[in-house]
């Protein structure tokens, strides 16, 4: 530490005396080169971090019936968990054991759209549950390049057409 201070002092002293100006510009050039190298290194680090960026989704939405369009039930609500935002779900249940859904979560930094299929258990129950998987179909804003998928869980409330949907997955973006 002391040695380093001495070095600094020596360098300042030489500049003050007007001696070693050429050495100082050389030092500046070296510093500029170092800064450039560091910037490149930093850029490389950022892009590596970008590639490794993951959105660890573990979200739940309690959704209310809004309207229906043909066979599709449209529900909306808020997502709570790791990605906060507004959720819109287009839920299709035709009587087949497999249900399908398209959903979009819109947050402050962007939106994520996905589609999923799931198998409904106990259809003759007031609130049949379902379990399946989802695949991201697109995104916007910070999540423009989001992809991947995960697991989808949910409950359909037959009396109110409401839904509780839970999505779990690690999504690179």
């Amino acid at each position: 530490m002391k040695h380093h201070r001495r070095g600094e002092l020596w360098w300042r002293k030489r500049v003050r005396n007007g001696v070693g100006r050429s050495q100082s510009s050389h030092a500046r050039r070296v510093r500029a080169a170092c800064v450039a190298l560091m910037s490149v290194a930093a850029l490389c680090t950022v892009s590596a971090a970008d590639a490794a960026r993951l959105l660890n989704v573990r979200d739940e939405g309690r959704l209310r019936y809004v309207k229906s369009s043909g066979e599709v039930i449209i529900d909306e609500g808020h997502a709570t968990g790791s990605f906060l935002g507004r959720v819109t779900v287009r839920f299709l249940y035709t009587g087949e054991p497999t249900v399908s859904a398209r959903f979009t979560i819109s947050g402050s930094a962007g939106s994520i759209s996905a589609r999923g299929t799931a198998r409904l258990s106990s259809p003759t129950s007031p609130s049949p549950s379902f379990h399946g998987s989802f695949t991201v179909t697109g995104g916007s804003g910070r999540y423009a390049h989001i992809h991947g998928g995960g697991e989808l869980y949910g409950v359909y409330y037959r009396r109110s057409y409401a839904l509780t949907v839970q999505a779990i997955g690690k999504l690179p973006y």
Binding site: S68, E71, I73, T94, G95, T124, S125, P126, R158, R159
Partner: peptide, 15 residues
């Protein structure tokens, strides 16, 4: 008709 949505109705919520 497909859009009759018999499956999503609240009829028969017990077996």
């Amino acid at each position: 008709p497909h859009n009759l949505r018999l499956a999503t109705s609240d009829l028969g919520v017990s077996a």
